[in-house]
Amino acid sequence: MSGNSFLPRKIHSLLGVIPLGLFFIEHALTNYSAFEGGQEGFKDSVEFLHSLPLIFFLELFLIWLPILFHGVYGLYLAFTSNLNVGRFNYGRNWAFALQRISGVFTFIFVIWHVWQTRVQVALGNTTNEEIGQHMHDIVTQPGFFILYFVAVIAATFHFANGLWAFLVSWGITIGPRAQKVSSRICMGIFVIVAVLFILSLFAFRGDEFASASAAIGSLSSAVLG
């Protein structure tokens, strides 16, 4: 395979599902623990993740590098596509256009989101234990709440529709019937995962995350400082 785009395109498609799709589901479930288990539930979920062995390498190889490749190559793919929904106003063509729009939007959002959360932990401005309160401080600002609300919908659409396209691009769903059934399943996944994220956004807005973590925050600052 000399200098061709077949392999990178295949890798782009694969990385979107494994590991990024799996990480995305994990992220939705971890956040949802804030809705289901409140402050304690969320803290336990975050602690569990950060207690995994070789966590740095897991993050590096299962999240950061795949996102970087998928995002940068995705920008190139979006650049080489025309959007022609005006002339061809068909459902699948809209999905094609939205896949590119949501992809570019999600990539920019993810860079911001990583800066606002993971990088702040790395810089020592917040900790994994305080991340719930940190999120509370972010999503109680109306501007950020709207940004996060739109971003989780865009990201979830991109994931669910990308899963549908993955099944086509790897030759798993071939006939129109298979593609129709898989598109219904993927849109079901879109709704379920989007609801998980939205519920957790509302959970982070709750007073529980303000007061309880504020107490922990003041405690830890008292201990540290």
Binding site: M1, G3, N4, S5, F6, R9, K10, L77, S81, N84, F88, Y90, R92, N93, A95, F96, A97, Q99, W164, A165, V168, S169
Partner: peptide, 19 residues
């Protein structure tokens, strides 16, 4: 079709089958 500009260029808009 596995060389540059081959099948990987498909983005599944499915306009072709409609047209």
């Amino acid at each position: 079709l596995m060389t540059d500009g081959g099948i990987e260029g498909c983005g599944n808009s499915q306009n072709c089958v409609r047209s």
